[in-house]
């Protein structure tokens, strides 16, 4: 019925008492000068949150930044799960390319 349904996460254990994967993962956001900011984010949270938080922290404008994970542009309304991100993954921040 729904479109693009996400895998339910959140509880630490599922109905059978089997522990789920950790709800939160660590993501490292690295700028071109190798400065790293670490974020702890839920797997099911949209990455926009991370991006906004990073830009707030760095006083940068979100539109002027690109977040690249393993060669893929990070889309703000996808989640780490959808991007197949694992804990400890590095997200590169690149300023917008113009020319």
């Amino acid at each position: 019925m729904g479109v693009g349904r996400r895998v339910p996460v959140g509880a630490q254990r599922n109905m059978l008492g089997v522990p789920n994967r950790p709800t939160r993962i660590l993501l490292l956001v690295k700028d071109p000068w190798e400065n790293v900011v670490v974020f702890r984010i839920k797997r099911s949270a949209q990455l926009k949150k991370l991006m906004i938080a990073y830009c707030d922290k760095k006083s940068a404008e979100l539109d002027n930044m690109r977040f690249v994970h393993n060669g893929r542009l990070v889309r703000p309304n996808l989640t780490p799960d959808e991007h197949e991100m694992e804990s400890g993954d590095v997200i590169d921040v690149v300023p917008v390319l113009l020319g």
Binding site: G2, V3, R5, R6, P8, V9, G10, K42, S44, A45
Partner: peptide
């Protein structure tokens, strides 16, 4: 509930899932 899960993404969602 399922539908709400789709969009859930904020801090407070843990309550929801709870």
């Amino acid at each position: 509930m399922e539908d709400r899960e789709q969009g859930s993404g904020s801090d407070s969602e843990s309550y929801f899932f709870k």
